[in-house]
Amino acid sequence: MADREVDQQLVERVQRGDKHAFDLLVSKYQRKLGRLISRFVRDPAEAEDVTQDAFIKAYRALPGFRGESAFYTWLYRIGINTAKNHLLSSKRRAPTSTPFDAEEAESFEEAGLLREVNTPENELMSKQVVGVVQASLQQLPEDLRSALTLREIEGLSYEEIANVMNCPVGTVRSRIFRAREAVAENLRPLLETSKGKRW
């Protein structure tokens, strides 16, 4: 089942009253939406608030979501509108020269134009998280590292990775999982200890 269809399944669960399903969507899209909003709202603390507001607005609007567009396109549109309304309400103008629009949300990840400003505290935590992930990746055996990289960075499907690595699809699935789990194992202590700091 494709990624978009999984999102649709989660949306339908939220529409049936399952709040935990919305948690999963938040975990999945919070950083992408946050990066998008920080294009409009430069202040990091404000950008965080606007990101939260956008998710809450999305949750309230979910009964009207019919799945005619991808969930993330719809969510990004809400994010852009929330950011623009925030700037209007604080009597500032949204950056009109931004090359980003709702229709371009589909290619958001490829845009590579986004630069947000983090608070010093978050900046430090971000560096620690990035450091742990990258160090863990380097410690992985070559076959696990390649499988995870081909999936997460190159965006290849399991079948394509199986062709590249000349192994069965089941092996690809296992390698990617083992790679993720090895990195997560090193990451968990950092995430747990910084719980109060919202990491």
């Binding site: 948690d23 938040v26 975990s27 999945k28 919070q30 950083r31 992408k32 946050g34 990066r35 965080e48 990101t51 939260q52 998710f55 809450i56 990840e109 986004l114 630069r115 947000e116 983090n118 978050n122 935590m125 971000s126 998280v129 990035v130 992930v133 990258q134 990746l137 995870l148 990289t149 997460e152 960075i153 993720r180 990195v183 997560a184 990451l187 995430l191 719980k195 700091k197 919202r198 990491w199």
Partner: peptide, 22 residues
């Protein structure tokens, strides 16, 4: 797992976790 994916794709753009607040 999603955090790991985000870090690998965009290591310069990692936000703090908002899910608990939301």
């Amino acid at each position: 797992y999603h955090l790991i994916g985000d870090v690998l794709r965009q290591p310069d753009h990692i936000h703090c976790d908002l899910s608990a607040t939301i």
